[in-house]
Design a protein around this nucleic acid. Structure first.
Length: 411
RNA sequence: GCCAGGGUGGGGUAGUUGGUUAUCCUAGGGGACUGUGGAUCCCCCGACCCGGGUUCGAAUCUCGGCCCUGGCCCCA
C-alpha cells in the first residue's frame, strides 16, 4: 500500500467543507476591508527565500533542480513571493496596495500537532502605507478575521523600537544573540553574554521590558524611543477600537527585516505549536531590487486555526434523493434537473436497486425523497416524501420544489 | 536531528510462554422483498506497515526501515 508523503494530509469531504467555510470567513472579511486576492507560483528561485531568510533555511525547505538546472524551492512562506511580485509587476501601482492570499506552503520539518510539511497560510500584505493607521489596520483586520471564525486567541502587540533602543550600543550580531536569548527565555545565556559585553545593567532593563504591559512604563525603561509618537498613535487607535490585545515588547521575531510594530496571535487550547498568527511592519522590497517601500502584513496559520476550532458544526445542505423505477428514469432525470436549477442539491439513484432499497438508502443520507415511477411519469406530478417525518404527498413539481425550499435540512 | 508511545479489513477492536481457516462490532456491496424505507435474515467484500533474521512454523521473538501520535529542537 502506497502511503502519502510524510507530513501531508488527505481531506475527505466533511473536512474540506469545514476548511472551506473557515476559509470563506477570512476571504469575506478581507473583501470587506478592500483586500484583493493575489496568487504567486508554488515554487520560486531558491535565492528568493535565502535572500530573505538566510542560507540556514535551505535544509528546512523542499529544494530541487529542474531539468534546466535551475535551483528552485517549494515556497516555505508567501510574503517573499508577494513582495517579489510587487517589485516585478506592481511597483507603479497606486498606493497603498491591499492584497491577500490563501495558499499552501511547504517546509521539511518534523511533523507534530499543528505542524505539517504541507500547510496553508492566509495572509495579508499592505504595501506602501507607512502610517500609524496602517499599522493599526493590520492588527484590527487580523482580529476581525480571527473573530469571524470564532477561534479563541490571545493577541500580543509590540514594537521593536524599545528593544533596539536598549541594544543600540551592541554590535548587530550580539543584538541578534541577545534577542534570541530573550525569545527563548534563556536568562542564563543572556546574563553571560551581557557580562561579556560589559553591559550587565542591561539585564534588568531587558527583563523589565519583556514583562512590561504598559506603554508608558516601556518608555520609562527604554528611554527616548525615536518612534515614540508613531507608537502612541498606533496604540491610541487600537484602544479606540474593541480589539482585545495585550502589549508585549518581548516579541523579537528574530527577523532583521521587521522594522517596527510586530504582533502575534496564540490559541490557548493548542499545544507546543500554538502560534496561529504573526505579523508586523517590514521592509523587504529593496532585497529584490525594488524601492524601499514600507509594508505591513500578517499570516494566519490556517491549519492551526482548524485544529483549535476542533469539530465545527457544519450547516448541512438539504439533500433530495431522486428515487425511480425503470419506467420513471427519463422523467426522473428531468425532475432532478429542475431541482438543481432551483439551487437544490439533488442526487439520482445510480444503483440498480428496487424502490424499497433506494428509499432505505435515501433515508440515511437525504432529507427528501422524490419518487418517480410509472404513475408519476404518466401524470407529470411527483411524489415527495419527507424522510424525517415520513409524510408523503403527490403534487406538482413546482409545489415539491417549494416544499423543499420552505424546510431546511433535518437537524 | 533527538526522546517517548504506537501501527491487525474503510473505521473501531480480540489475539503474544510462537502453533489449524486470525475474533467481534461497524461501514460497504449483493440478495430475499419488488410502488414505500432505516427492521430482519442470508451471502459477499476486506487486514496482521515494509524488509531481513531466528524457527518445522512469526501478527506474536529479534534487527533495520517507513509511517502515525505527542514532546524537544527549530520556527521564515
Amino acid at each position: 500500500m502506497l502511503q502519502k508523503p510524510r507530513g501531508t494530509r488527505d481531506f475527505l469531504p466533511d473536512e474540506m467543507e469545514a476548511r472551506r467555510s473557515v476559509e470563506w470567513c477570512f476571504r469575506e472579511v478581507a473583501r470587506r476591508w478592500g483586500y484583493r486576492e493575489v496568487c504567486t507560483p508554488e515554487f520560486e528561485d531558491l535565492d528568493l527565500f535565502t535572500m530573505r531568510s538566510g542560507e540556514g533555511i535551505i535544509e528546512e525547505m523542499y529544494v530541487f533542480l529542474d531539468k534546466g538546472g535551475r535551483k528552485l524551492a517549494l515556497r516555505p512562506e508567501i510574503t517573499a513571493s508577494v513582495i517579489r511580485m510587487y517589485v516585478n509587476e506592481a511597483k507603479v501601482a497606486k498606493k497603498p496596495l491591499r492584497w491577500y492570499y490563501f495558499a499552501d506552503c511547504f517546509r521539511y520539518e518534523r511533523p507534530q500537532k499543528g505542524r505539517y510539511r504541507q500547510f496553508w497560510q492566509f495572509g495579508v500584505e499592505l504595501i506602501g502605507a507607512d502610517t500609524a493607521l496602517a499599522d493599526a489596520e493590520m492588527v484590527i483586520l487580523a482580529a476581525d478575521m480571527l473573530n469571524a471564525t470564532g477561534v479563541m486567541y490571545d493577541l500580543r502587540v509590540g514594537h521593536l523600537s524599545f528593544m533596539k533602543q536598549l541594544l543600540q550600543d551592541l554590535e548587530p550580531n550580539i543584538q541578534r544573540r541577545v534577542m534570541s536569548y530573550l525569545d527563548k527565555k534563556d536568562f542564563k545565556g543572556l546574563t553571560v553574554t551581557l557580562e561579556a559585553m560589559k553591559k550587565p545593567d542591561l539585564y534588568q532593563s531587558l527583563t523589565a521590558l519583556i514583562d512590561c504591559r504598559e506603554l508608558a512604563e516601556a518608555f520609562d525603561i527604554s528611554g527616548l524611543v525615536p518612534e515614540k509618537e508613531r507608537i502612541e498613535q498606533t496604540i491610541g487607535i487600537l484602544d479606540a477600537t474593541d480589539v482585545k490585545y495585550t502589549l508585549n515588547f518581548g516579541i523579537a521575531r528574530g527577523l532583521d527585516y521587521y522594522t517596527g510594530m510586530v504582533f502575534e496571535g496564540f490559541a490557548p487550547n493548542l499545544g507546543a505549536e500554538n502560534q496561529i498568527l504573526g505579523g508586523g511592519a517590514y521592509r523587504l522590497a529593496h532585497l529584490f531590487g525594488g524601492d524601499d517601500v514600507a509594508s505591513c502584513g500578517f499570516a494566519i496559520g490556517f491549519d492551526r486555526v482548524m485544529v483549535s476550532l476542533g469539530d465545527v458544526k457544519q450547516s448541512k445542505d438539504t439533500v433530495v434523493a431522486i428515487v425511480c423505477t425503470n419506467e420513471g428514469q427519463k422523467r426522473a432525470l428531468a425532475i432532478a434537473r429542475a431541482f438543481r436549477d432551483a439551487g437544490i442539491r439533488a442526487e439520482m439513484n445510480l444503483m440498480e436497486r428496487g424502490l424499497g432499497t433506494q428509499l432505505a438508502h435515501a433515508s440515511k443520507s437525504a432529507d427528501y425523497a422524490v419518487v418517480i415511477g410509472q404513475r408519476e411519469a404518466e401524470s407529470g406530478n411527483v411524489t415527495i416524501k419527507n424522510l424525517q417525518t415520513g409524510e408523503q404527498k403527490t403534487v406538482e413539481l413546482a409545489a415539491a420544489i417549494a416544499e423543499v425550499r420552505a424546510h431546511g435540512p433535518r437537524g
